[in-house]
């Protein structure tokens, strides 16, 4: 059964999971249950540079939320 993740960032960017393009920021992403590392597409003007989380026990209305913010 799918898990759900929402990667938050003020602008629409590509989301990379373990280095592979896998959807967009601020939308719900369907993923499998496992440990994964999130990054955003270039330019690398966001922080933190990557976030690693174990995704499990999520639902479509209670996704795991990942927060990136613009680098100041």
């Amino acid at each position: 059964m799918p898990e759900y993740v929402k990667v938050n960032y003020p602008r629409r960017r590509n989301v990379f999971i373990d280095g592979v393009k896998n959807g967009y920021t601020n939308t719900l992403l369907r993923v499998s249950s496992r440990r994964m590392t999130f990054t955003l597409s270039d330019p690398p003007n966001y922080t933190p540079k990557s976030i690693t989380k174990i995704v499990k026990d999520t639902t479509v209305i209670k996704p795991l939320e990942i927060e990136f913010t613009p680098e100041t």
Binding site: P2, V20, K21, N22, Y24, L29, R30, V31, S32
Partner: peptide, 17 residues
């Protein structure tokens, strides 16, 4: 359908719209 990790993953293509 279940994993976004494979090069031929359908889940990945769903996420990429």
């Amino acid at each position: 359908l279940e994993y976004e990790i494979f090069p031929y993953s359908l889940l990945q293509k769903f996420n990429n719209e």
